[in-house]
Design a protein around this nucleic acid. Sequence first.
DNA 1: CGCCTTTGACCGGCGC
DNA 2: GCGCCGGTCAAAGGCG
Length: 186
Amino acid sequence: MSYNCFKTSSADKKMTTAFDHNLWSNALFIPDTTSSDVIKTDHGNQSNVMINHHGNQSNVMKNHMASQVDEDDDIMGKPWLLEGGNVVVESPEAVGSGCDTKIEMKANNPKIAFQTRSQVDILDDGYKWRKYGQKIVKNNKFARNYYKCNYKGCNVKKQVQRLSKDEGVVCTTYEGFHEHTIPMPP
DNA sequence: CGCCTTTGACCGGCGC
DNA sequence: GCGCCGGTCAAAGGCG
């Protein structure tokens, strides 16, 4: 995979806030950050800022530096891991650069949304998805795609949409949590 | 043949 | 009540 995560400018934050309110109300938005936006977690590790739908910084997201997982080949290369109901996102760009970015979400908010700068719309997050809809939405020249998790009994959905404001950015919104492990590739 | 995507129809919420 | 809009359904078709 080749896409960039967690890079933006402060000007972009205005855009993402409006974007959140208009299109993904109640969604938690994970903005990209510049190096100056990096904050510290309780563990002293660097962390990306997370903004909720009120525009407030949330503390449910924590990053872990590569040193914690560098030696774990099973983790590296897998974009998504599920551990005890917590969603763990791993930045593929960070993997490539040797800096593993894991984001754990422990809030009970069922939706998270994040942007990635990507050439492709469909980002492989490890799960199998079935497309069930596509919609042209207002003020955006790209269609929004709707997917459901293919795992039996799993109700997790996601929406994928490329921004017309910035055609290089794909926004993915996940709704619900997987209560199963990532199906192993054949 | 089974699985998946495509795509128009349908439905519910919301604003006027 | 009506129309717009976003989300979902489901039939049809494609593909391996």
